[in-house]
Simulated scan of single mutants.
Amino acid sequence: MPRLPHPSRSRRPIAICGSLIGALGVLLSLVRFVDSAGSWIVPTLQAGAPWAAGAAAVGVVSVLLAPRSRTAWVCALVSAANIGAALILVAPVPPGEAATGAAAADRATVVSFNALYGNGDPAELLAEAQALDADVLLLEADHDYVARLDAAGAAQRFPYRLVSDASGGAATAMLSATPLDEVALAPEDEMRFASWAADVRIGGETVRVRAVHPVPPLDGRAEVWRDEIGALDTWVSSTPGPLVVAGDFNASAAHPVFRGLCAGPGALAGCGSIFAPPTWAPREWIPPVLPLDHVLTRELAVLDRGAFRVSGSDHRAVWATVAPVGQR
């Protein structure tokens, strides 16, 4: 009668595969502490940090399948290290405060959306913005897209607007229900894609609102991406008072340079954690996989926040309802 293979030996390949996947997870977990962007490789690996914990689950399963295998126990240790690395310095996402403390006139809802070269459905976007009673729209969009929004009725809701002369993905627009004051457009050597800043009155307070869209860290532009977010950090430090900074940052809490925006005195809030809800997908029909779009604030109470889908874009629109701290 032929001898049957020992169960732990027959499952050893599973344990080995689990160990390799667990080791990859540790790499993804730890690389997010590397503050370097010499090439696209580092920021791309950092973006995969939210998926690192999944590799730990594979390691645990391999231990269960081969409990007597030394390789499996090595895998278990790797998985434990993976989980620990994934949780280190994870900033908690503050829960939204009840949106009942401030009167409607004392709050404002800011919506940010990357229209993907104008492919995002303008009628859908406007309908969602109206349902939220939005006050400010920050768009990665050009004059043509704003004209299509106006055709859907946006001009009545948002009569005040700033639209850059750039086209496609390099363009930025700011549409508002109330006047925009102290308007400024960031110089091109600071932000390659247009970036508007303007003052908006919210609950009797002047709030500086800025629309941002750093370049993606691809195609040899990783250093540019890092420099642009660094320049934004410098701008935040030198700009007094309440702030709203929103847009497609092409970054998440897995990237050290982005986490820097929410670190230190006078920093922004809202960077979240590596497990923040994802807002971008490589294809429209794929569920979102990375949290690249954000609404960051300073010296403001965030009453509520969320995201919604707009057909035609690979990005979710993100929004936040804010009020001056003293009027919650």
Rank of each mutant, 00 (worst) to 15 (best):
A52G: 09
D142F: 15
D293M: 11
C17H: 01
A155G: 11
P95I: 14
A155V: 09
W51G: 05
V90W: 11
P277M: 10
G38Q: 04
V90H: 05
D181L: 15
P277D: 09
A184I: 02
A115M: 06
M191K: 07
A23C: 08
V183I: 12
D219T: 10
A155C: 09
P159I: 10
L87K: 05
V236E: 00
E140T: 09
C75M: 10
S36E: 02
G153K: 13
S273P: 03
P50F: 04
A55F: 15
Y160P: 01
I88S: 07
W319A: 00
A15Q: 03
V322Q: 00
A98R: 15
S167T: 11
S195A: 14
W73N: 02
S313Q: 07
I83R: 05
C271H: 07
E182M: 04
G118V: 11
I41F: 13
P13Q: 06
A57N: 01
E223D: 12
R259M: 10
A52Y: 14
L87R: 07
R316D: 08
A152M: 07
A171C: 04
A37P: 04
L45H: 08
S164Y: 15
V325A: 15
A231W: 14
S19W: 15
T172Y: 01
L77S: 10
L292A: 12
V325D: 10
V111P: 11
R107Y: 02
W40M: 10
A49S: 15
G270E: 01
T71Y: 06
W319G: 01
E284K: 08
L125I: 05
H143Q: 15
G247I: 02
A231V: 04
S79C: 08
F158V: 07
E128N: 09
S311Q: 11
